[in-house]
Amino acid sequence: MIKEICVLFLCCFSLGCLAEENLESVMLRMKPETAVQIAYQETRSMGLFDNDWEGSGYLYAAVPNAMLKQQINPDIELMAAEGNQLSYSKPASHTFQHTQLDESNPMMASLIAFKAMLTGNLVILRQRYQLKFSTTETLWRLEMTANEPAPDEQPLKIIMQGLSEQAANRMEMILPDGDRSLYVLSKPQEGLAIQQHMQKLLQTLKSQ
């Protein structure tokens, strides 16, 4: 009897070990094998706006180093960071920009963090942020605080969370000036079709 209880205990313990979330496993889950598409709802709380601003669209990510944000509502907007190239397009205001991602530019910090998270690049996140990972029974939570904030400014803070053993379903960015962006994320979709669609969007953006 005792023997059976011990075996059962050991199995539960092992299963418990296997089941315990950690940062590496979360990032591994975030890392797409081909290309991934995540539908999002964005809410921005900005000090200079009377009300929260809402938008929605799709996020795409592909290894090793590509991210694309396709805003559908309220206006069409495309922003892509592929390698160290950054492209932006907003047809409504005839705005098109192609530049290089300058990691030393604080204005690009949030974008770089976003890209690193969506492509599961823990190395970059560890370089730039203090990482605090915590779990409960049902949730995991990763809190990132920028390492080198500008003088007289609060550091950029990013909080990512999700259900246990699942990809992130929520991401919140708290900017140094107090403005916030909250992303509610749907379950990621992967596949060849998504990869092809992402490539098509990237091509469209580069050609503008």
Binding site: M46, G47, L48, K90, L111
Partner: peptide, 17 residues
């Protein structure tokens, strides 16, 4: 409004206030 929603939002906000 458009500028505050753009990638240059942070710069524009500092000026606009």
């Amino acid at each position: 409004r458009q500028a505050l929603l753009s990638p240059q939002a942070r710069l524009i906000k500092n000026i606009a206030v």
